[in-house]
Design a protein around this nucleic acid. Structure first.
Length: 702
DNA sequence: CTTCTCTGACTTTTT
DNA sequence: GTCAGAGAAG
């Protein structure tokens, strides 16, 4: 029922992609053309048609958020009780599904199922430790981590690198760090994100029967955001899929691809690797107006190596896209705030319909200031909402040690906590012993305590620590709540917490207290930050990266200046510039109705003021497609300008209740206008928001 | 061991 | 301008 209702709304191309089952399908979809809708409907359609056969399909994307949305939409479109049946479905991120496979198969490839999953932070900590130990410049850890991750996601082992790069002056030190990193991870029974994919691939390659069972089980495979899949993820799909695969993507929305080694467009590659691929295009945008499409297309069409698409819309042409140029960033921010207030007061848009986008987080400050001045509620999305806070990391480290005593990164974290009274010297001895014997820190401590190297007092301290860990890890099968209580009753950890952290912990216990410890730990590693979506009636502020996959009726893109868009560090190569252009394109195509682009001549970046030029990308927009408005800081007649009118006395305050002869009782949202022509916006619960001139609307104060 | 001051780095970011 | 991390001083 629900499916048929929704199917009516699908375009011809979408329905075609849903019905077609004869060969692999590559869906080339533009922004807002209903690619996710297609995927969820195909899933639901097959599922509804033949539960026996299509009860266990695989549907993957890249982010948790997208996966969650996918799951919800499928649940909505399937015929029966959405709660019960989707549990067995393989819907999620590549990483979570690989994790699930590894656990299900009891991972017979040199790892045991009590492996811990390292997130990027853990990864960085390990790399820093290695760099430090190898007497290399530690501050490089971020770059090193990035490179290693890149190698791994491209399935380049150290051995392969050695043979491939022989003739280049390949960084030998980097290679050594890579080897060492892999070695340490192995010893700790720890997997990073890339390992989840790589180990699954190995599992499949070494156990053809296991692979075969999954090929049987996944009767159909659906992939969203296909353009962003890594090489390893792509191999995963290639192993599992035959004709029974649909991938959907938009190469114009790829991000983080600028440093990709792979030059070939992955969409092209798919067509080559999968025989008889059926190519379908979704070019009707259900989101943007024609004006927005025209402008954004003029920008993105300057990119090379893209699959050409022409998006169209049968929505009205809509408002013209506007570009404003200001003298200073404060003017820009003020203008944005004022404009938002106007839009809101006109009553057509609520604050949550509006987004302000920028390239770098630090741009948000000025804008936040301006919004505060206008009393506009807003929410900054992304940036500092670190779910992995310091204290939380402490707790998780303890929990991980319960789970896996060989987790050195967590052990280092815990043992270095204050009042453990274990000196750097002792720690060094432990590290050396572990290194010498090729064992984990935990095992090294056990060994050293049995030997003669340490004094009685040190042994005692370490002994207490060991007994604690032993006692805790004897209870691996507990639930999260029990584990936390255990840690609490045997360490001073809980006592050291402030109120906020305590709240955070009770929140976690409330949310997932009944989860098995192991399950909780992988969930924590596999889900990061963003459960904070849009808030009730707030303007959303975020970076262009963060806006991926969202849409808003009104979008402001700020800081359209050379140096910001494109960012000054990304103007060297064409690949970098292409990515910056895609980023700009991505931002523009988030807008459903109205798109504002703004920039300013004077901007403070870090400590210094800079003179900015308008973004070079603006030159790609035909002059008549857009309204170009330049605001001068000081109008020529500034000196002779009449002083601002005295503040107007308003008869009503916001929030006060009034009665209208026709619409009944409402609440004043705002008062504005001249003394003799005061206008008000009133929210009538039954009628909606109305703008009224006080002179004519016979309002009655109540 | 703790606290303070200095230095310097500084896009974006998912899993 | 701001934050973190390292090193020096208490």
């Amino acid at each position: 029922m629900s499916e048929n209702l929704a199917l009516d709304k699908l375009s011809g191309q979408q329905s075609a992609a849903i019905d077609y089952m004869d060969s692999p399908i590559l869906v080339l979809a533009g922004a807002g053309c209903g690619k996710t809708q297609l995927i969820t409907h195909k899933f639901a359609h097959l599922y509804n048609k033949n539960r026996e056969k299509y009860g266990s399909m695989l549907a993957v994307t890249l982010t948790n958020k997208a996966a969650g949305e996918m799951r919800d939409r499928i649940a909505f479109a399937i015929d029966d009780d959405p709660q019960s049946n989707l549990k067995g479905a393989w819907v999620g991120t590549f990483y979570s599904q690989c994790n699930r496979i590894l656990l299900k198969e009891k991972a017979s490839i040199g790892i045991t199922t009590d492996y811990v999953i390292y997130d990027s932070e853990d990864q960085c900590r390990l790399i820093r430790h290695i760099l430090n130990d190898m007497k290399l410049y530690e501050a490089l850890y971020k770059g090193v981590a990035g490179k290693i991750s890149y190698f791994k996601s491209s399935l380049l082992t150290p051995e392969e690198l050695l043979s491939t790069y022989n003739n280049f002056d390949f960084d030998e030190k980097l290679l050594k760090v890579y080897v060492r990193y892999q070695d340490e991870m192995k010893r700790m029974n720890a997997l990073d994100y890339d390992d989840l994919i790589a180990y699954t691939l190995r599992l499949f390659e070494e156990n053809p029967d296991v692979l075969d069972s999954y090929r049987q089980m996944f009767s159909y495979i659906l992939v969203d955001e296909f353009q962003d899949t890594t090489y390893a993820q792509y191999q995963f799909l290639k192993l599992l899929a035959r004709d029974n695969i649909l991938v959907a993507g938009d190469d114009d929305q790829t991000l983080y691809k600028s440093r990709d080694f792979e030059t070939e467009n992955i969409l092209t590659k798919f067509e080559k690797d999968f025989a008889n691929t059926k190519l379908l295009r979704l070019e009707q945008s259900f989101r943007c107006t024609q004006n927005i499409l025209t402008v954004s297309d003029s920008v993105i069409s300057k990119n090379s190596h893209r699959k050409h698409k022409i998006l169209w819309s049968d929505k009205i042409a809509g408002e013209k896209v506007c570009h404003y140029w200001f003298m200073a960033e404060e003017d820009e921010a003020k203008y944005i705030a004022k404009n938002i207030k106007d839009l809101y007061l006109k009553g057509n848009y609520s604050y949550s319909d509006i987004a302000i986008l920028y390239r770098v987080n630090l741009q948000s400050r000025v804008i936040e200031e301006a919004l505060k001045n206008e009393r506009i509620p807003f929410k900054v999305i992304g940036s500092s909402t670190l779910y992995h806070k310091r204290q939380m990391k402490d707790l998780i480290s303890y929990l991980r040690l319960i789970w896996n005593r060989d987790d050195n990164v967590s052990l280092r974290w815990v043992i270095n906590q204050p009042n453990k009274a274990i000196t750097a010297n002792t720690l060094n001895k432990i590290e050396n012993e572990a290194k010498k014997e090729g064992i984990s820190l935990y095992k090294a401590i056990v060994k050293l305590c049995a030997g003669k190297g340490f004094s009685a007092s040190i042994k005692e301290k370490l002994g207490t620590f060991l007994t604690l860990i032993d006692m805790l890890s004897a209870k691996k099968e507990v639930t999260l709540s029990e584990a936390i209580k255990l840690v609490g009753s045997h360490t001073s950890y809980i006592e050291s917490l402030d109120e906020n952290s305590l709240n955070d912990i009770s929140e976690i216990m409330y949310r997932s207290g009944n989860m098995a410890l192991g399950e909780f730990l992988s969930t924590v590693s596999l889900t990061t930050t963003n459960d904070d979506t849009r808030c009730m009636n707030c303007v959303s502020l975020m970076t262009l990266y963060n806006v991926k996959g969202m849409e808003f009726p009104v979008v402001f893109i700020s800081g359209l200046e050379d140096g910001l868009i494109p960012y000054f560090k990304a103007t060297e190569t064409t690949e970098d510039l292409d990515e910056e252009r895609r980023l700009f394109y991505l931002g523009m195509t988030r807008a459903k109705d109205i798109l504002f682009m703004t920039g300013a001549r004077k901007r403070r970046l870090y400590a210094k003021f800079q003179d900015q030029e308008p973004s070079r990308f603006l030159k790609d927009i035909p002059k008549d497609c857009c309204l170009w408005i330049e605001k001068n800081a000081i109008p020529a007649n500034a000196a002779t300008r009449t002083p601002p009118p005295p503040p107007v006395e308003f008869p009503y305050n916001t929030g006060c209740r009034v009665k209208h002869p026709k619409w009944g009782i409402g609440v004043i949202r705002d008062c504005y206008g001249e003394q003799n022509d005061i206008k008000v916006t009133v929210n009538f619960p039954n009628v909606g928001v109305k703008r009224l001139a006080l002179k004519y609307a016979n309002l009655e104060k109540i």
